[in-house]
Simulated assay, not measured.
Amino acid sequence: MNIAYWIVSGLLALFSLYSGAVKVLHDRERLRPMMAWVDRMPLAAVKALGTIEILGALGLILPPLTGIAPWLALAAAIGFVLLQCGAIAVHLTGEDRRIALNVGLVATAAVTGRLATTWL
């Protein structure tokens, strides 16, 4: 189970680090082609979501790696499930109704959360 956790959480963390960094580092004009919903939110909220994704990715990796507060990995996985559920709601209320990636990320985060309970 430990190897499975590192594979699944590592993939989720890499995706979230990339996605979060893009949101934090780019302006609205560079984000618009990738994310149609950025025009419906304040730029500060987009940057905050990116920061949350980066911190969540670190929360998936660092606590189990260091052995310090490993329950934070479970909290990060639950946070990702909630974040992606919110993302699905945002996509469905706007003109961009593509949610397949978000549904996949919900499933990945749920599996990560289940695997994180093996050492608690």
Rank of each mutant, 00 (worst) to 15 (best):
L14H: 06
L82K: 03
Y5S: 00
L25T: 15
P42C: 01
Y18T: 11
A110Q: 00
A45Q: 09
Y5I: 00
R30P: 07
G104T: 04
G79Y: 03
R30W: 13
A116D: 03
G79V: 02
A21K: 05
E29M: 09
L72D: 01
G67V: 09
H91C: 11
L60S: 00
G79L: 04
A44V: 14
L105G: 02
D27R: 13
A36C: 03
T93G: 10
G67E: 07
R30Q: 15
M35W: 11
L17T: 04
P70K: 06
A13H: 02
V46Y: 03
M41H: 11
A116C: 07
L62I: 15
W6I: 15
G56I: 08
L82E: 02
N2A: 15
A44K: 08
L74F: 14
N102C: 07
A77D: 00
T66M: 10
A107Y: 06
A69V: 10
R28C: 09
A89C: 08
L82Q: 04
V103N: 03
V22P: 05
T66P: 13
A4T: 10
T66I: 12
W37V: 12
P33I: 14
P70W: 06
G50C: 10
G50A: 09
I88S: 07
L14S: 10
A110W: 00
T112E: 00
L62R: 08
I78C: 11
V90P: 02
M1N: 14
V81T: 05
A36Q: 08
P63N: 06
S19Q: 06
G67R: 01
V8Q: 01
R97M: 08
T108V: 13
K23T: 04
L17G: 05
L115G: 09
G10T: 08
W71M: 09
L115R: 08
W6T: 14
V111T: 08
A45S: 12
G67S: 06
D96M: 03
